[in-house]
Amino acid sequence: MREPTYFVLASLLDGPLHGYAIIQRAAHLSGGRVRLATGTLYTALDRLTADGYVELVREETVNGRVRRSYGLTPPGADALRAEATRMAEAARLVTGRCRRLTASGSARKTSPA
């Protein structure tokens, strides 16, 4: 799962949102790293709806234009959770080993050659 996709799904965890709200929420959740352009967002939504991860839940008219809100489906929530677990495991692998590396590195530096 690519990072923008991950943050699009994560932005829907607290309930359905419409296009621009997803962009804002994804930017907020990622600390400003994921700045989705409109074209990118709708390409992602097309794919996610086709995969059954996201569904259209509300349609309203705002300023004479249609506004659609999208929500996370149970399979979408499962996929998001699986990805989060995978990333947490991958992170643990490195963070655990990094501490050991730094420790042995500093030990080597102080020991006589």
Binding site: H18, G19, Y20, I23, R35, A37, T38, G39, L41, Y42, V62, N63, R65, V66, R67, R68
Partner: peptide, 21 residues
């Protein structure tokens, strides 16, 4: 809805959508 999102995403006072968009 894409037009709606584009207009919302553009900062006020802009006459052109950004290059990124």
């Amino acid at each position: 809805e894409m037009l709606d999102t584009l207009l919302e995403a553009s900062p006020p006072g802009r006459n052109w959508p950004s290059f990124r968009e």
